[in-house]
Computed example of a mutant assay.
Amino acid sequence: MPGHGRYLKKHTEALVKDVGLEAACELTGRSKATLGRYYSDADEHSDRFMPIDAVAALEASSSYPHVTSALAELKGVTLSYDQERRNTRSSGVNSDVVALAQRFAMLMSEYNQSIEDGVISVNEAKRLLRETTALQHVLLEMKLNLEDESV
């Protein structure tokens, strides 16, 4: 299986687990075994992937668009997924620079803790991913503010 196949299967599994197996079966009209084949990395299932209509149905109920974001990453596209609702909005580039520095410091702190034993566990990788995504959100707001100021 090519590298992207495993990557997509991993994100398909995350999507099914996010929604829950029973709910995923109901939403897609497929059995547990069929859903399992879509994310199995066994050789006999290496060419089986979840159909796009099933992905759409699950992502409509999930907390995050796992497969869509994985496809975007494989293509080198950055998506903006903003589920966060802040009490205050960015007040400009200066506050964005401060927020960027704070987020980067948090990412480095998380990395330092994660690499302490020489191995980054799955949970540590998930925390690093959350911090990286938060950093990406700050950069996106900064980009939007810069575009507003340059007009």
Rank of each mutant, 00 (worst) to 15 (best):
L100F: 09
L100G: 04
L100T: 12
L100Q: 05
L100R: 03
A101R: 11
A101K: 04
A101S: 13
A101E: 12
A101I: 08
Q102K: 03
Q102F: 01
R103S: 11
R103P: 00
F104W: 14
F104Y: 10
F104L: 14
F104G: 02
F104M: 15
F104C: 14
M106N: 02
M106K: 01
L107N: 04
L107T: 12
L107P: 09
M108F: 11
M108K: 15
M108Y: 04
S109A: 10
S109W: 03
S109F: 02
S109C: 09
E110R: 02
E110G: 04
E110M: 01
E110C: 00
Y111N: 01
Y111M: 06
Y111L: 10
Y111H: 06
Y111P: 01
N112K: 15
N112E: 13
N112V: 14
N112S: 15
Q113F: 08
Q113A: 12
Q113W: 03
S114F: 07
S114R: 09
S114G: 10
S114Y: 03
S114E: 05
S114C: 13
I115A: 15
I115L: 14
E116F: 11
E116Y: 06
D117Y: 03
D117I: 05
D117L: 03
D117A: 13
G118L: 10
V119K: 15
V119P: 04
V119G: 08
V119A: 14
V119L: 15
I120N: 10
I120K: 14
I120A: 13
S121F: 08
S121H: 12
S121P: 13
S121D: 13
S121E: 12
V122M: 06
V122H: 11
V122I: 15
V122R: 10
N123F: 11
N123L: 08
N123V: 15
N123D: 14
E124Q: 04
E124A: 03
E124M: 02
E124D: 10
E124L: 04
E124I: 06
A125K: 12
A125N: 14
A125T: 13
K126V: 09
K126W: 10
K126S: 12
R127N: 06
L128T: 01
L128F: 04
L128H: 03
L129Q: 12
L129Y: 10
L129M: 10
R130P: 01
R130S: 08
R130D: 07
R130M: 05
R130Y: 07
E131M: 00
E131A: 03
E131S: 02
T132E: 00
T132K: 01
T132S: 07
T133M: 07
T133S: 04
A134V: 04
A134T: 06
L135K: 06
L135V: 04
L135P: 05
Q136V: 03
Q136E: 11
Q136K: 13
Q136G: 08
H137E: 08
H137T: 12
H137G: 06
H137F: 00
H137M: 15
V138I: 13
V138G: 01
V138W: 00
L139W: 07
